[in-house]
Design a protein around this nucleic acid. Structure first.
Lengths: 146, 146
DNA sequence: TCGATATTGAAAACGGATTTCAAAATACAG
DNA sequence: CTGTATTTTGAAATCCGTTTTCAATATCGA
């Protein structure tokens, strides 16, 4: 059994929540995919194999994932919430292509450090942060120049 | 006449849009305030002095401000769009206090530079970016410890 | 001033997130 | 195993901020 499944089961137990077949199906499907899907997209994917599972359940379960730390919630400004699998404590930020919607992850330790410096000078306690660069990915830059 | 008013008038002329009393009232009120108000909050403020102006007009006008560059649109994840006055070409990012809602602006040239580096290594053309640090401001940290 | 065009405000529509509710499933004590 | 209290489910309804519609009104330029 994978670590994240364990985490979720522990979370359910701790909160006196029940381990249902729907939750396990959603968990497995969620861990299997590796992108930044909106609830809607994820639901549509899932429905192909499991037509019986309702949107509300998917939504509620994704929220649980976020709460227990195995999913990260993002809002890239398109009005839809997106979820991605959260691996360990690693943190990354995003390049969001406004042309094709592609999302590229990146990590930059220097930026993280500078953020801490900023927080310190403002006596601010950081709980989380969000850094997104919006623009065109290499493919879209090429396309646009034609 | 202030620079930003000129900019807006030029923008209206360029787009063959009309210079109405409502737009001027909204512009002046918007430039006068100096925070990060949601459309709703701004509308409620404005309504005290100008009860005749409708929400739709306020909303549409704020969008025009954003389009012509005198306002910046933000989404701090609370489900409401916020607008702030955009001064010249200066760019800044935000510390968002999740305790009291306070928003602190900061600028960090090193972070900006590192962002450009990241973009370059991914052959990505940046159009805009968003950096927000969420957490507790010094007041809220103090309060929480009591 | 006239006439074409844009704008206005109220209300309706929209869209995604969230909640409601009655039926079904689960956990767990006995 | 039960029985039962509690949670969960799916469909539909609701919420809530944003955006659009539309008929009346205002603006602009000839």
């Amino acid at each position: 059994m994978k670590k994240q499944e364990e985490l979720f089961l522990e979370f359910l137990a701790r909160k006196r929540l029940k381990n249902t077949s729907q939750r396990m199906i959603i968990l497995k499907a969620f861990l299997r995919q590796n992108s930044h899907l909106s609830t809607e997209d994820f639901y549509l994917q899932l429905r192909k194999k499991h037509p019986g599972i309702g949107y509300a359940t998917v939504h509620r379960t994704l929220k649980l994932f976020a709460e227990c730390g195995i999913a990260a919630e993002h809002n890239f400004g398109d009005g839809q919430m997106r979820f991605e699998v959260c691996h360990d404590n690693e943190h990354h930020d995003h390049l969001v292509c406004t042309g094709c919607g592609r999302i590229i992850e990146f990590e930059n330790q220097q930026i993280e450090q500078l953020q801490l410096d900023v927080a310190r000078t403002h006596k601010f306690f950081i709980k989380s942060h969000r850094l997104e660069l919006y623009g065109l990915c290499s493919d879209c830059v090429a396309t646009e120049q034609q």
